[in-house]
């Protein structure tokens, strides 16, 4: 196991991502942040508080569970469905930023785009990921990346966040698959 991002690295990456989101969208007025549970939701909360400390206004932040839209449901045991909380302002005509911890095959994001389509029609959809580990199976690309982490498919990337795991850390583990 090797540590790829320390707690400080994660904080710096999230701060940079927050600035990049603001830069790309020219402020926070039309932004909605949606985290993909579980860890993406916590990252969304952190980015939201960083943005509001920079801009001085709160950014609508919610969660988007994509379990029911996955295309690999049959390959795994049933997963628990996590809450979806869309901010009251809705997503219609907004610039939605999806936030996830690890970008890998891209299938989660495909499912998230389907899930968003059921809720409304955002003006744009952007994607922020703490780690991009490559091996995409679909034509999907992140707009904001914390760190590009070259990995082999047999390895696994483990993201720990203090909200649920007690500490912040991203590490690469050799897989046994």
């Amino acid at each position: 196991m090797s540590v790829a991002l320390s707690a400080q690295d994660i904080t710096r990456a999230l701060t940079r991502i927050s600035h990049e989101i603001l830069e790309k969208n020219q402020g926070s007025t039309n932004i909605v942040l949606l985290g993909i549970p579980t860890r993406g939701a916590h990252l969304a909360t952190r980015i939201s508080s960083i943005i509001s400390s920079i801009e001085g206004t709160d950014v609508p932040t919610g969660t988007l569970d994509i379990t029911l839209f996955r295309d690999d449901l049959r390959m795994r045991p049933p997963r628990a469905i996590m809450p979806t909380k869309i901010p009251t302002s809705g997503i219609e005509g907004k610039d939605v930023v999806l936030i996830d911890d690890v970008l890998f095959s891209g299938r989660t994001i495909r499912a998230a785009l389907d899930a968003l389509g059921e809720i409304g029609r955002p003006r744009t959809v952007q994607l922020a990921a703490l780690v991009d580990r490559g091996h995409r199976e679909l034509p999907i690309k992140a707009d904001f990346i914390g760190k590009n982490l070259p990995t082999s498919k047999s390895q696994s990337v483990k993201v720990l966040l203090s909200e649920i795991d007690g500490r912040d850390e991203v590490s690469i583990e050799e897989g046994v698959e």
């Binding site: 029911l68 449901l73 049959r74 390959m75 795994r76 045991p77 049933p78 469905i81």
Partner: peptide, 11 residues
């Protein structure tokens, strides 16, 4: 139906 059917054949 979700709990009974959404999972894969393996499980």
């Amino acid at each position: 139906l979700y709990v009974l059917l959404a999972g894969g054949a393996l499980e």
